[in-house]
Design a protein around this nucleic acid. Sequence first.
DNA 1: GTCGGGTTGATTGCATGCAAAGACGCTGAT
DNA 2: ATCAGCGTCTTTGCATGCAATCAACCCGAC
Lengths: 224, 224
Amino acid sequence: MSDRTGLREADNGHAADHAYRLIRDQILSGQRSAGEWLREGELAESVGVSRTPVREALRRLTAEGLVRHERNRGVQVQAWSVHDLDEIFSLRSVLEPWGCRLAATTGTVDVAALDALAHRMDEVAPDGRPTDVDQLTELNNQFHRMILEASDNSRLAGVVSSVIQMPLVWRTFSHYSPEALRRSLAHHHELVAALTAADPDWAESVMRSHVRAAWHSIRPGHDM
Amino acid sequence: MSDRTGLREADNGHAADHAYRLIRDQILSGQRSAGEWLREGELAESVGVSRTPVREALRRLTAEGLVRHERNRGVQVQAWSVHDLDEIFSLRSVLEPWGCRLAATTGTVDVAALDALAHRMDEVAPDGRPTDVDQLTELNNQFHRMILEASDNSRLAGVVSSVIQMPLVWRTFSHYSPEALRRSLAHHHELVAALTAADPDWAESVMRSHVRAAWHSIRPGHDM
DNA sequence: GTCGGGTTGATTGCATGCAAAGACGCTGAT
DNA sequence: ATCAGCGTCTTTGCATGCAATCAACCCGAC
């Protein structure tokens, strides 16, 4: 471990966290393909730390479902099927509308911030054609997370984000048609309106439409 | 580490798993009280392994929310408030009825096994007075888990069980009045009936009643 | 040619040592 | 008496070495 400092640029001082973020990013960005074995030694070297914090990072990723752990064999990147996607989206289509309903009643949601996010997404994807898919994804995640956190049920937010990891690998928005993406962005504005009006039924049903539309946009063979 | 074998009785061969189970049981059984600090060294000695597998066990427990991890300070048993209980039960009152609805439609649920469980619970708690709270809790968990696993959505089952840990600490059934417990057991039989009839609406609404009744039975100050 | 057994190599799992960070108590100054 | 500064001591975080495990290969027997 010679020039460790050279490799740990954005290190906030903690090897395990650093390793976790690096490995996670490699998986989410697709640099590590599904089924690929992640060797502790190799990762340790590439991250610039010893195997111990790498092992800790891999255990966290295992708990989050991004990788699979086999005893005495190692860790491999989780493989995903269409059925997994169906499970996740059917779960989301229950949880997110409910969370959105709660957010509409608590009144703690920051509608101005939501509105700003919706407009920034419009800019990143003018006319339904995204210029930067990663940024669009990030903005979208912020939008949804912000609503769930206003639901005043921290476990709900945690559960949804733990389940959502996989669609991130799938790079959701790259599967959208321009029309589907325009509709998705319109939903965001409608959600802002419903939350501003503090109408739980409206908010819930728009979110349900939003999630189910997304489901059909992503599902292979249904690119509408 | 002298006579390690003497301490590892039910060891299936793997130190980290062993440590995990032991520590987890200590928390769930109440031997470790909320807020108590869990020292790696002490745990390692008591389990009979080194600190490394203990650390791994503690990280798993952290991911499951049973303990809290503070950087460079250690791990302490998670403390629970009534608000946490509310969060969990409101989540359950959305997820479990939905899972029960799904189970009623997939037709993969083993109603005979469910019926057997319901009757065994009757025996363990005749006239709403439990003879063995732990066994009753275990049977109840099996009952609910079996329904969720028949929902054909593995993530749903995972999410619910991850969220349910805390009521286990609370030792749910010891808070029930005889009347509430009798009602709870009756719900189980009604659930079996609804699932046998494969009626999604019936199944869903019984489960919703069941969860919300449980909520009121447990909530401090609402022992009806 | 195929199958079984043993052997080698790679990799994980665990134990241990050391360094760094925080908590506590002491001392001294105000 | 109170509080800042300092040193010690406990505890965690990380690195490293070694043992156990698994996979793949090779070789010999049938």
